[in-house]
Design a protein around this nucleic acid. Structure first.
Lengths: 206, 206
DNA sequence: GTCTATATGCCGATAGAC
DNA sequence: GTCTATCGGCATATAGAC
């Protein structure tokens, strides 16, 4: 890699981390540069504007988590059950979001703060990643693993939304991303209601 | 209400809407004032700083959704099942977030962008609202409606996180907040896996 | 490639007129 | 209560030296 390319990569790494921590508008180009011991003006050799930086960060964030999910699924044996495939994809998503990638977490945190034109430019890779999940869920429903009356679009949005929201409270001291993924999968795949029919009324009094 | 109080209320309404739409740092006091046909400096008669405005918006946002949930539960008959209570609380939360309150949606969108001191000041009301949900879920588990091996802390965070994430994609043209709440409840309470045991392997080939 | 210096503009906040 | 005027600071972006 050329010096320019590696410097640009380090600047993007720092930008992703700062965007994740502070939001888009609150991060200045001077701040990004200072974290890499450079002057603000020097960034314009690598990027033509602040918008180009956030556009790059947003796109890379989706590409990383998408690649992580695809590779995790590819590593499964062909005989893996649909439940295993869903749990594997959830683990890969949460590991990327919570443990590996400032780009992916920055995407979740600041997409809504980016200029509309930048959001629009990010839609292509977002759609591709959503399609990846749609494929997983559709295959499961087609084979009868997911109940036929389940609306897959709502399920996908609920699942990805619930995972992305963990960014706000995940604490590695209380368990790994993999454990959290299994916990979420247990709740959503099997349901949390007791199936033995021994439910009592809402306001029991002794 | 005095003129000062009603003007302050209108300014807060506008601030909540603009914060929700654009994020914290991207909204200027001049912008809030202009939306109410006032000059920027005039806001300092009602608020002592920008931080005071966001602190008020964040606190009101939680109070509104908390009140909505408590009142919806209070309106249920004492004989209502735990499942009904959970579905009712979810409907009230999603209605406040998606249909009624710019304060609640602003809270979800900008809490992480607020100065640390402001986040800390918002924790008291947030904790109270979380406790409200913990009470609902604990009562259900105590009476056997929720499976005994379900971790309620994770379930609560998953449930509220999934609901709050709908802010990013909810479209009233595709259904009401109430319908969405029932859809989410169906998925999470009953689970999405087919219970008949007819699952096939992951990669079926014809 | 990175620097310094600077153009231009908006920001939060304050002072004092009305 | 709201206005006008303004302070000091920091923002993005550019120009040109090295």
């Amino acid at each position: 890699m050329t010096k320019a390319a590696s410097t640009k990569a380090r600047l993007l790494d720092t930008a992703a981390r700062l965007f994740r921590e502070n939001g888009y508008a609150a991060v200045s180009l001077r701040g990004i540069a200072a974290a890499e011991k450079m002057q603000g003006g020097s960034l314009y050799y690598h990027f033509k504007s602040k918008e180009e930086i956030i556009a790059d960060v947003l796109n890379i964030g989706i590409e990383i988590v998408h690649k992580a999910v695809v590779e995790a699924l590819a590593a499964l044996p062909a005989s893996a059950s649909h439940e295993t495939r869903i749990r594997t994809a959830m683990k890969a998503h949460l590991r990327a979001l919570l443990e590996h990638s400032d780009y992916t977490s920055a995407n979740v945190r600041i997409f809504g703060q980016a200029p509309k034109s930048v959001q629009k430019a990010n839609l292509k890779v977002r759609r591709a990643y959503e399609d990846c999940w749609s494929d997983i869920l559709q295959a499961a429903q087609k084979d009868g693993a997911i109940a036929q009356n389940t609306d897959l679009a709502t399920l996908r949005l609920m699942l990805i939304g619930a995972m992305n929201a963990t960014l706000e409270w995940f604490d590695p001291k209380r368990g790994s991303a993999d454990q959290l993924a299994d916990h979420f999968a247990n709740n959503l795949l099997n349901g949390v209601l007791n199936k033995s029919g021994q439910n009592k009324p809402g306001k029991t009094r002794t």
